[in-house]
């Protein structure tokens, strides 16, 4: 079990995260928050790249910085944006990282080929990465995160740059491997989380806003989300969520704290609604 215990992170006077407490057990955690809310800071702390100003992060009851190598041995990390050695092939690059992850050469040989196949890069695995597309680089990143078969997989914006087909494959991959490990993935693509996350963590104003299952989170807006073809008829104060064009008309989805059943059709809230509503005051 991975525990984030009253963690605060400050950069000088700026507080990036304040008093965060989260317990992670096996399953997929979706970290959902707008940019600049401290998502990456939290993730980097889990990846030991940043250190909490106060509080602690524990793995099986021991502080991760104390565990050192032992802890890093069980994590796989895909940073939000990362560099690569342009003049190396993915195979060379992964072999280097396998060495850093302390994987035997023979195991690495097998594992690298296997993973490059898994992310469908086997036909370019000996080409220099200089000419790779963003999506291909992203897949190299995913492959390296999985190299050591991590117990904790930390993915920062993993689906950025992937095309729809790759994204579906990625989701399936995560679902498959999430049985006996902790997967923490941050994204602001709500549909990614909706389909695979067991729990959703939201940060607001640099604090933990909620940590719950997607359905429970959606329930917070139960009965408050409506759709209407004619938004002008809504007289109560409301917050518009999304619009959809259909046959030249506009279907507006909105949140209203008071009852609007007379002018609009109530619908089941989804995560996106919650996201838009919770962060309505923040410039996204």
């Amino acid at each position: 079990m991975l525990v984030v215990n009253h963690v605060t992170k400050k950069y000088g006077n700026f507080t990036a995260l304040e008093d965060i407490t989260i317990k992670f057990t096996n399953g997929v955690y979706g970290l959902l928050a707008p940019n600049g809310s401290g998502k990456t800071t939290l993730i980097k702390m889990l990846a030991t790249l940043l250190f909490p100003t106060s509080g602690e992060i524990l793995w099986e009851g021991i502080e991760i910085t104390k565990l050192g190598e032992e802890y890093r041995n069980i994590i796989g990390y895909l940073p939000q944006d990362f560099g690569y050695y342009k003049n190396q092939s993915p195979r060379q690059f992964l072999h280097y990282l396998a060495a850093l992850k302390g994987i035997d050469r023979s195991v690495a040989n097998r594992k690298v080929t296997e993973l490059l196949e898994l992310v469908s890069l086997s036909d370019v695995m000996d080409k220099k990465m200089r000419h790779f597309s963003g999506g291909m680089i992203q897949r190299v990143g995913i492959a390296q995160a999985l190299l050591n078969d991590p117990k904790i997989l930390i993915l920062d914006e993993p689906t950025a740059g992937l095309d729809p087909k790759e994204r579906v494959r990625f989701r399936n991959l995560i679902s498959e491997i999430s049985q006996d490990r902790i997967v923490i993935l941050s994204t602001h693509i709500v549909s990614d989380i909706e389909t695979i996350a067991n729990r959703v963590i939201m940060l607001k104003d640099h604090k933990l806003y909620c940590n719950d299952s997607p359905s429970n989170i959606c329930r917070t807006l139960e009965g408050k989300v409506y759709e209407t073809w004619d938004i002008k008829t809504v007289t109560q104060p409301y917050f518009p969520l999304t619009q959809r064009q259909e046959d030249g008309r506009t279907l507006v989805r909105f949140v209203c704290e008071s009852d609007c059943t007379e002018v609009a059709r109530p619908v089941t809230p989804n995560l996106e609604d919650v996201f838009l509503y919770v962060y309505r005051d923040e410039a996204i």
Binding site: K44, A47, T48, L49, G68, E69, R72, N73, I75, Y77, P79, D81, F82, G83, Y84, Y85, K86, L97, A99, L100, K101, G102, G141, Q144, N148
Partner: peptide, 20 residues
């Protein structure tokens, strides 16, 4: 090298980590 290539976050979070 890792700073130049932007690989710091990948490299320093591996098992060897900063001991590299």
């Amino acid at each position: 090298y890792e700073q130049i290539h932007g690989t710091e976050s990948i490299v320093y979070s591996t098992k060897k980590g900063r001991q590299v």
